Computed example of a mutant assay.
Amino acid sequence: MNLADIPRVSYITKDDFIEHYFKPQKPVVLERAIEDWPAFDKWNLDYMKKIAGDKIVPLYDNRPVQHKDGFNEPHAKMKMADYVDLLKNEPTKYRIFLWNILKEVPVLQKDYTFPDFGLKLLKGLPMLFFGGKDSYTFMHYDIDLANIFHFHFDGEKEVVLFPQSETKNLYKVPHSLITHESIDFSNPDYEKWPILERASGYKTTLSHGEVLYMPEGYWHYMKYNSPGFSMSLRAMARNPKNLAKASYNILIMRYYDVLMRKLKGQDWIDWKNKKAISRTNKSLETLVEK
């Protein structure tokens, strides 16, 4: 894959962000954007254990999607205190994602403010994501194709991004938001996934207090190099094409996929994974013919 380093800036004005990153839809890492937040000094795994230790949290690992697991059903549950101990004491694939702190631990809202980047952030949807060393998310994009600001705390996280224009090279699974789950985007096997070599994207490693801007609908893969967590804030897509695609995903695609899972079970999932390969390979065959 052709991966360029994501640009980095220490500080940026709202006007510069809009002009140089939002309008051209390019990612950027803001290195010192939240040093005035109480969260910058307070938020680490020990603090989360202290403030939310009694909360029961849903956990997910890296196993491929299986019909028997249910749709978005957690693979395990435990108290946050026990989960933090697990993260700190041994490698684990268990992750927390889309954990709404407004609902679960309202006091955490006092530790941050909504930054003014020139976009209207959705204040009801701050989400936390946790992971252990070497755990990762499958390459995916968000259902609403939002503009995302990803605030990282504690540890280091490896990130790989692709714009929607690279979808044809990523072995996208049809009727879903993910690529084929067998691909290791940290160390891809080009003999097995040859078309990935045509993909052009971005990479970076996030450390405590850094903020990653991911433009509308960007594909993203994230791997925890050490135990840690992040918070995401989002703003609605502005591009009419992306808004239309988001509406289709939310109102039609996800319900169709759920229906087909109920009707065909694992056969539907297996068919989608095979199609991810055959459709992507076909695009290469078409290119060669031309």
Rank of each mutant, 00 (worst) to 15 (best):
G132E: 05
S207G: 05
P126M: 03
D116W: 10
D36M: 02
A199Q: 12
V28G: 07
A76Y: 14
H67W: 04
E285A: 07
G201T: 03
P74C: 02
S10E: 12
F97S: 13
V159S: 05
I101W: 10
E35S: 04
F114M: 15
F149Q: 06
E158L: 14
G228W: 01
D15Q: 05
T204W: 08
V107I: 14
K168C: 00
T280L: 07
K172G: 10
M80L: 09
F97G: 01
K192T: 11
P64A: 09
I51Q: 04
L243H: 09
D69H: 14
L177K: 15
S186V: 03
E210M: 11
H208L: 02
K241R: 15
T204I: 11
F71N: 12
M253R: 15
I18M: 10
A81Y: 02
R279N: 14
M127K: 07
I148R: 02
E19C: 06
A237E: 02
W268F: 14
H67E: 06
L3Y: 03
G228Q: 12
A76C: 00
K93I: 11
K245I: 02
Y21L: 07
I252M: 14
I252K: 10
S278A: 11
N187T: 08
G70S: 09
T280N: 15
D41I: 01
K123N: 10
P163D: 10
S230A: 12
K245S: 00
H220E: 01
L161Y: 11
T92K: 12
M78P: 04
W99D: 05
K49D: 14
N147T: 06
V107R: 14
Y21M: 02
L125N: 05
E31D: 05
D270W: 01
W43A: 03
K241S: 13
P163K: 08
D85A: 13
I183S: 12
M222N: 00
N44S: 02
W219I: 04
L98V: 15
L243Y: 07
L30W: 04
Y218N: 05
